[in-house]
């Protein structure tokens, strides 16, 4: 619990550390195809993608959602995440560089802890929105370091 003992409750509107990923390669898509079990050929087979009217293969939306999820799990224990939802806005081509971000949109007190609401986004190098999302995180009361607060640190 050493990681959670030092958890500092964020302020509303506080941004979490951003995660930069990419450029997304064909190998990334092949690895994700195999590891995820999503074998839709449109993500790995350029012949199939062209027959489907696309110029090239493109990344799985769920790969970007997995990258974005790392912003949350880098910050809090996964068991604190109550809800994680996204809307896929645009497809992500090979070569894209992605920035995964999260910002606290609300902090509410519960009987035993806090609930944080977050707004999430994945943008590419041209600031085009790829994914828009939301998450809620429940911070248990015991995770806040009351000793630190009592001593008036920070």
């Amino acid at each position: 619990m050493s990681a959670t003992a030092t958890f500092k409750l964020p302020a509303a509107d506080q941004a979490l550390p951003e995660l930069a990923v990419g450029p997304v390669s064909r190998l990334d898509l092949a690895l994700y195809c195999g590891a995820s079990g999503d074998h839709n050929p449109i993500h790995v087979d350029i012949d199939f993608a062209r027959r489907a009217g696309m110029d090239d293969v493109f990344a799985h939306g769920m790969l970007s959602m997995a990258y974005l999820g790392r912003v949350l799990t880098d910050w809090v224990p996964q068991s604190w995440i109550e809800d994680y939802a996204v809307r896929f806005s645009a497809i992500t081509p090979v070569g894209a560089r992605l920035r995964c971000s999260a910002r606290v949109s609300g902090v509410s007190a519960l009987d035993h802890g806090w609930r944080l609401r977050l707004v999430l986004a994945v943008l590419d190098q041209n600031d085009e929105l790829k994914i828009k999302g939301e998450a809620t995180v429940r911070v248990p009361a015991e995770a806040i370091n009351t000793v630190e607060n009592d001593h008036g640190e920070a």
């Binding site: 027959r51 994680y84 939802a85 996204v86 896929f88």
Partner: peptide, 12 residues
């Protein structure tokens, strides 16, 4: 060939 993933949600 005509499908796209529009939204995904997880409640844990």
């Amino acid at each position: 060939a005509r499908v796209l993933h529009g939204e995904q949600r997880f409640r844990y």
